[in-house]
Amino acid sequence: QVALSRTQVCGILREELFQGDAFHQSDTHIFIIMGASGDLAKKKIYPTIWWLFRDGLLPENTFIVGYARSRLTVADIRKQSEPFFKATPEEKLKLEDFFARNSYVAGQYDDAASYQRLNSHMNALHLGSQANRLFYLALPPTVYEAVTKNIHESCMSQIGWNRIIVEKPFGRDLQSSDRLSNHISSLFREDQIYRIDHYLGKEMVQNLMVLRFANRIFGPIWNRDNIACVILTFKEPFGTEGRGGYFDEFGIIRDVMQNHLLQMLCLVAMEKPASTNSDDVRDEKVKVLKCISEVQANNVVLGQYVGNPDGEGEATKGYLDDPTVPRGSTTATFAAVVLYVENERWDGVPFILRCGKALNERKAEVRLQFHDVAGDIFHQQCKRNELVIRVQPNEAVYTKMMTKKPGMFFNPEESELDLTYGNRYKNVKLPDAYERLILDVFCGSQMHFVRSDELREAWRIFTPLLHQIELEKPKPIPYIYGSRGPTEADELMKRVGFQYEGTYKWVNPHKL
Rank of each mutant, 00 (worst) to 15 (best):
V300Y: 08
E314P: 13
G482D: 03
R327K: 05
H379I: 09
E271W: 01
Y434I: 11
A315G: 15
L289H: 02
F351I: 07
H379M: 09
R345F: 07
N298D: 12
V286K: 07
F351P: 02
S415T: 09
A297V: 15
G407K: 03
C291W: 08
V397E: 05
P431V: 13
D440A: 03
T420E: 11
L289F: 05
G422T: 11
V306P: 02
S278L: 04
M408Q: 14
W506C: 10
Y500W: 06
I480P: 07
S329A: 11
V338S: 07
I477G: 05
S275F: 08
A336S: 12
G313N: 10
P326E: 08
Q380K: 12
V366P: 03
P393N: 10
M401C: 11
I480E: 11
A269T: 03
D418M: 08
K317E: 15
G407Q: 04
H260G: 15
D440S: 07
F449Y: 05
E413C: 07
V256D: 06
A489W: 05
V507A: 12
G444T: 02
A458R: 15
R354N: 14
Q446D: 01
R327P: 15
I352Q: 01
E457Q: 09
N427F: 13
V288L: 09
V341T: 02
Y425V: 13
A358Y: 00
D490Y: 09
E365T: 07
R451Q: 03
M257R: 00
D283A: 04
P431C: 06
A274T: 10
F334Y: 13
A297N: 12
Q392M: 13
V288R: 01
V338Q: 10
W459P: 01
P474F: 13
C443R: 05
N277I: 10
W459N: 13
W506E: 14
V286P: 01
P464N: 08
E488T: 07
V366K: 01
P431I: 12
L262E: 00
V295G: 07
K494D: 15
D347Y: 08
M264T: 13
F370K: 02
P486L: 08
E342S: 12
V301E: 04
K285E: 06
K363S: 15
S275R: 03
E454R: 08
Q381M: 13
E342W: 06
Q258G: 12
I377C: 08
V341F: 00
R282V: 04
M402F: 15
V373Y: 15
V391F: 14
D376L: 13
K287I: 04
L359V: 06
V428R: 07
E413P: 04
D418L: 07
L492F: 08
R424L: 09
R345N: 11
H379Q: 07
H260I: 15
F378N: 02
Y421G: 04
K505Q: 11
N308K: 11
T399L: 14
L359W: 00
E314R: 07
P431S: 09
E413M: 11
K429E: 13
E501A: 05
F410Q: 04
V281Y: 13
L492Y: 03
A364P: 01
A489H: 11
Y479N: 01
Q499V: 08
V391T: 14
Y425A: 15
E414L: 09
P478V: 05
S275L: 04
F370A: 02
E470H: 10
N394K: 13
I292C: 14
V349D: 00
R495W: 07
G422D: 07
L437Y: 09
S483A: 10
Q468P: 04
K505V: 12
K494S: 11
N394T: 10
Q263G: 10
F409S: 12
Q304G: 01
Y421F: 13
E365I: 02
D453I: 01
S452A: 06
E416Q: 13
K383P: 15
E344K: 12
P309I: 10
E314N: 11
V268M: 07
D255V: 04
A458N: 14
K511M: 15
T420C: 14
G485M: 03
Y305S: 00
T399E: 06
K317Y: 09
H448Y: 08
V256T: 15
A335L: 00
T420V: 06
Q304P: 01
V295P: 10
N423Q: 08
I438F: 09
G318I: 01
G311M: 08
C443N: 09
A297R: 12
A335M: 01
D440Y: 05
G497W: 10
I480C: 13
S275T: 09
K429T: 14
V496P: 11
R354L: 14
G356P: 00
Y425H: 14
L267E: 02
T420D: 09
P323F: 15
K426H: 12
V391P: 13
G444K: 05
Y479T: 02
S445H: 12
V397R: 03
